[in-house]
Structure formats: structure tokens, C-alpha cells
């Protein structure tokens, strides 16, 4: 199930394998395919998303980022914490305003962290219901450090 901006949402994107033909409408492709077919993909004038594997930094995207409406961060294993930095960089440094979506092996217990670093959409496994998702965001009321979510820190509230 897709949760976007904290609510269940319809997934309007189709993720396309590298060797599959592109369907009409919004698609998500790998970074590799995006690089290989960049001009064709951008010329479609449809919404376009890319998937970043956990070892792919968004910084390499440069100004192409402006043409993307979605970046999917892939978690191969929940212990691989690199996507947390990619999200933070996308929001804080690269000022990406499109959708950042978490996909793959992430845990309930990482949702609040993901939200804080700038992820706003989650492909939830069946074990995480929308109710549980909402609960994850309420476990900790305040935060000590600034991140990409613009929340007022404890330091600022004092």
C-alpha cells in the first residue's frame, strides 16, 4: 500500500523494468535506464520518476533533478542507512520538491526517521497498516536535531 503525505494514496506511477517497453503515463525507471534513454524519457512530457539504489547518490543527477517528479529510494536491507542521507541531501541541499518515496526493506521503526529526512511517500508492506503508520509518527513528540522536515527542535523550543 502506498502512503503519501500520511494518507493512503493511489499509486499513479508504473515502475518499468530496464528491458520492458514504456507504457503510457507516469513511469519510474532505474538510474541506469534514465542515463541510457535520458532525452527520450524527458521528451515524453509525462511524469517521470527514478529509482536510486542505496549506493547511488542523488548528487550525480545535477540539474536533471528539476525534470523529475519522483525519486524512489530503494532499501535493499533495512540496515543499509544510506537512503537516509540521500533523502536529506535531496531535500536540504538539492531543494528537491517532488515526491521522495521509500521502497523495499524498511521497518515500522524507521518510518519516523524517514519522514524526518524528507521522505513523504512509503510503499508499505502488508504488516504495516495505515493505523500503524500513523502510530509510528506519534511515538516521539519532540526532536533534538534539525533535519529536512523543518520541525522546531527542542533547542529552539527552550
Amino acid at each position: 500500500m502506498l502512503i503519501k503525505n500520511n494518507l493512503p494514496a493511489e499509486d499513479t506511477y508504473v515502475t518499468v523494468a530496464d528491458d520492458a517497453p514504456l507504457p503510457d503515463g507516469a513511469v519510474v525507471v532505474s538510474l541506469k535506464r534514465f542515463r541510457a534513454e535520458r532525452s527520450d524519457l524527458l521528451a515524453r512530457n509525462q511524469k517521470l520518476g527514478i529509482v536510486l539504489d542505496s549506493d547511488q547518490s542523488p548528487e550525480a543527477l545535477g540539474s536533471d533533478l528539476d525534470r523529475l517528479s519522483l525519486v524512489v529510494l530503494e532499501f535493499p536491507k533495512f540496515r543499509d542507512g544510506r537512503p537516509f542521507s540521500w533523502a536529506r541531501i535531496l531535500r536540504t541541499r538539492l531543494k528537491f520538491t517532488g515526491e521522495i518515496r521509500a521502497r523495499g526493506d524498511f521497518l515500522y521503526d524507521q518510518i519516523a526517521f524517514l519522514k524526518r529526512v524528507g521522505v513523504d511517500a512509503f510503499e508499505l508492506p502488508p504488516s504495516i497498516t495505515p493505523e500503524l503508520f500513523a502510530r509510528a509518527l506519534t511515538e516521539m513528540t519532540n526532536v533534538y536535531q534539525p533535519s529536512a522536515d523543518g520541525r522546531t527542535t527542542i533547542v529552539a523550543m527552550r
Binding site: 533495512f78 543499509d80 537516509f84 524507521q110 526517521f113 524526518r116 526532536v143 533534538y144 536535531q145 533535519s147
Partner: peptide
Amino acid sequence: WSSLHPEFSF
């Protein structure tokens, strides 16, 4: 600052 740091906990 490091307590439940959202980016540096994994």
C-alpha cells in the same frame, strides 16, 4: 544532538 538522529541511526 545524536539522540535518535534520523539520518545517522543506521
